[in-house]
């Protein structure tokens, strides 16, 4: 059908496909498939992605994992602890047997024991992952939601709308967030909004982190929107009679998915660290619920007798953050058309 319609008379007879354009062979691959092919070849990013998936599985399957490989996270094992130093004994039946240098790592307790009250560290790390990832994910979602909506609106409408939103971003970015979080967490009542105890604290953490970090996403979305709205397809949509809402969410948003995805992946580790910092400072999750930051904070008193208690939660945070960052960088390279293939 195409060839006879296109080809000028002379070309038609002599060489039918002489001058016609053929659909390219790569036609059936969407941008996402191309990105996936690139991503697959990036071994480092793939490793990051695998670790991230394992972490998420760990968090979801925490109850199963502890049942299979550990003990309940709040069960004390003080019979294994040297009552004088709080460290883990070499031989639980002999109080004079000295301290275990590995902190009680064995087939029974995969990551050893907590000093003093002897809770199973494996279980606490696994449950800590739940809290860390939950807070980080929800906070990031909140950031992305607020940031995308305000960013796209500011970029598209410009004028005073843009001025107001952009100045708001500046203010939020200049806010002494850590101090504010400490102050706010200090005055949280025991119950509010139908939530109590740590449920409420998780909610507040998500809110604080999400509400104050959206400008990072917002600025990126605004910038992208500014350049996208100059493209002719936006004008084309307008000339078809499309409303602003249609243009914002049907035409522009699909083009913003990639940067949003990439920057959320890079925002998650930041949020993990932020949650850990708050818990470390004692304004995050309250004990006995396990959290990585809280564990690190406790561990400092025992670093001479139980160095593993410092290293293990630290490693957990380190690995998680690194994995997310590698994944995010990999995604950015895969989606960025300018990066070499």
């Amino acid at each position: 059908m195409t060839a006879p319609l296109d080809a000028p008379e002379s070309a038609q007879k002599a060489e039918p496909e002489a001058i016609t354009e053929g659909v390219r062979n790569t036609a059936n691959r969407s941008l996402r498939q191309i990105a996936w092919q690139r991503f697959k070849r990036d071994k480092v990013a793939m490793a990051g992605g695998v670790v991230v998936i394992l972490l998420i599985l760990t968090a979801i399957l925490a109850p199963v994992l502890t049942k299979l490989f550990g003990y309940p996270p709040n069960e004390f094992h003080q019979n294994l602890i040297d009552p004088l130093t709080g460290g883990v004994l070499n031989d639980p039946n002999d109080p004079m047997s000295g301290l275990d240098k590995t902190g009680g790592i064995s087939g029974d307790h995969l990551l050893g024991l907590e000093p003093v009250n002897g809770r199973d560290l494996f279980s606490r790390i696994v449950y800590g992952a739940q809290i860390s990832l939950l807070v980080a994910f929800c906070a990031t979602l909140l950031c992305v939601f607020i940031g995308t909506v305000l960013g796209i609106v500011a970029g598209y409408f410009g004028g005073w709308v843009d001025t107001v939103i952009s100045r708001a971003m500046d203010i939020f970015l200049a806010f002494p967030l850590l101090l504010f979080a400490i102050a706010l967490a200090g005055v949280i009542p025991d119950g509010a909004f139908g939530l109590t105890g740590n449920g409420l604290r998780v909610g507040v953490l998500i809110f604080i982190i999400g509400f104050f970090n959206w400008p990072y996403i917002g600025r990126i979305v605004r910038g992208q929107t500014l350049s996208l709205k100059e493209r002719e397809f936006v004008e084309a949509a307008r000339s078809l009679g499309a409303s602003n809402t249609h243009i914002l969410f049907r035409e522009l948003l699909p083009n913003l998915v990639t940067p949003i995805l990439v920057y959320s992946t890079l925002l998650i580790p930041t949020n993990i660290i932020f949650e850990a910092s708050l818990s470390f400072l004692g304004v995050g999750i309250n004990p006995p619920t396990p959290s990585w930051g809280g564990m690190l904070s406790n561990s400092l008193q025992y670093y001479t007798t139980s160095p593993h208690f410092v290293i293990i939660p630290g490693l957990a945070i380190f690995i998680t953050v690194l994995a997310f960052n590698l994944l995010g960088d990999g995604l950015r390279d895969a989606f960025d058309p300018r990066s070499s293939d």
Binding site: R231, E232, F233, A242, S243
Partner: peptide
């Protein structure tokens, strides 16, 4: 429009791009 490279939304299938007009109307 002049530039066929920027006048089509890269993230919409061409069917959607063309059909948008009808939907909008």
């Amino acid at each position: 429009f002049q530039n066929p490279y920027s006048s089509l939304n890269p993230r919409l299938t061409i069917g959607d791009s063309i059909g948008t007009a009808l939907k909008v109307q």
